[in-house]
Design a protein around this nucleic acid. Sequence first.
DNA 1: CTATTAGATGTTTTT
DNA 2: CATCTAATAG
Length: 676
Amino acid sequence: MHDEPRWSAGLDESQREAVEHDGGPLLIVAGAGTGKTRTLVARLARLISGGTAPERLLLVTFSRRAADEMIRRLAPLVGPEVARRVHAGTFHSVAHRLLRQHGEALGLGAGFSVMDQGDAADLMHLVRQEVGEGERRRFPRKDTLVAVYSRVVNAQEPLRPVLRRHFPWVQEHEAAIGQVFSLYTERKRAQGVLDFDDMLLYWRAAATDPQVGPVLAAAYDHILVDEYQDTNVLQADIVAALRAGARPLTAVGDDAQSIYAFRAATVRNMLDFPDRFPGATVVKLERNYRSTQPILDLANTVLAQATEGYAKHLWTERVGGLRPVLATCPDEASQADAVADVILEHHEAGVALRDQAVLFRTAHHSDLLEVELRRRNIPFVKYGGLRFLEAAHVRDLIAALRVLDNPRDELAWYRLLQLLDGVGPAGARRAMEAMGVGEGEGLGRFVDGAAGLVPARAANDAERLAAALRDCVTSALAAGAQVERLAAGLEPMIRRRYENADVRLRDLEALARVAGGFEDRSRMVAELTLDPPASTADLAGPPLLDDDYVILSTVHSAKGGEWRVVHLIHAADGMFPSDMSTGSREEIEEERRLFYVALTRACEHLHIYAPLRYHHGGPFGRGDAHSYGQRTRFLPPSVEDLLDHRAVRGRRDDVALPALSAALPSAVDDALRGLW
DNA sequence: CTATTAGATGTTTTT
DNA sequence: CATCTAATAG
């Protein structure tokens, strides 16, 4: 028999069609669990075996995790060395690489630093204070400002309609918000700082430039974009520009799984693909390799209620399988109880904890469950929600690193200086003025005379920090060692400022370990901000990875994942769909797709939990205030037959007591009588 | 001008 | 719960 190329082994008919397609633009509409990654990887392997140099392949994915996974799976097909040469990453990280490499040519100057969302919020906060005093009443908070800004940029839509449609509660401040945005962009420019959105803006500007654009486009022979349904107009523009000259283009996505509209992603990129790229071929993958048919039946039915999209019907050849279970729980506490019980049942039946995931709409939905899991010593790792790099002390250390890279970074100085005792906003400004931060003199002058810049009581700490910074500049320390050095320099300040300093200092040690994996410091800071560790496990390193633990994840962060057992909690209206997103039809449709994403993560067992009653006044409040939850609208009565129903009993049964014959207090009095 | 505290207040999802 | 404001003491 003739040798079949290694990449083609085990592909089904549609997958093969997608892998072998040649010529015009290709759109692969890949339903959940239909072997999208395998197809994309096989296509990469085929291109490489056909003679395309791996570094001339651009693979854009949604997250670093996804990129790593593809390269990992490509390795056995073409060899690890070759696989690693493929240009793979998120839009943001690829843009960053480009800007670092050609910063000078593109007019960015040598040392620019990258701001994450928290930094952007801080800068918004600063410039907000400089805008009209009269606007102070109920002015949007800094995070809202960042959200609005980001939406405006990524959707390329003017402020007014964005406010009207997505942020109506701050509409009245339109003029002032505009001013804040102008100041914000000015400041970034002056300080040599780029935010996330700038990565895309600069990349697009370069790619569409008549001189530079063609050179960039010529760098690649083939462009492949994953999760195309979650790209926005900026990203689509970049793709279009890069493929100038009808370079081959492959886009993969599932419109039914588009869940990032809040970030200005638009399914239109997918639906309009054939129009934008004439001659496009569309290949659909519908055969599912992940889930059992009963799970797919439910998912299909839920999706059938949606109003728009490529028609889709997932099917599998796998026979058998259990119906999804809908567990109705009296309240949240019994839900947590029930989840823990079922996790353990599966565990005893031989399913490892790491093959089970608990999914929910918003990060805090797992609060109560986390308490319960801890109580029962069930290990878990949480994805999504508050992340490591958002913790104040970690950001303090990052600020120190940023100052080294870009001494003009006012925001970082501002933060760093205020850690010193007796230095507040005004003192920090004064010191920065004296240091000549704006002129780029800040680092040198701080290192030379830190003590003179701050109040006497802070002199020691300032000198200590200055010494640490000096070490990082003058000696050729590795990135990890520099982090350690800076952590030591900051230690007294961290001890003074935060309650649980020991825990926080240990976090910084963890950061130093992560830093150890990088060769150069500026790269480390940028990569860490662009692609922060998504969970506590990502930081903990190998020792923890040997352990078995349950995954807790927001549905958004669970994208692309699959588990043998999935527990979907809080399937109640107001929670899922979130009551923040029930304002418009579009929002509800997005919530529906999100729900669909959650269902389709399950391979063998799907458990859905719906609490009937919600207590108010905090999860541990003792108040009796509660409200009744309605089962999520995404599971209407018409799906009844696709589910197994189960009623969970409350831990403390609410039994009705017969009225007491005598009043309780008198019985208590009797018991005490004569004791003193 | 900074530090600290008390009290009010507030849309979620992430590169 | 975290963040922001106002008020107050050092």
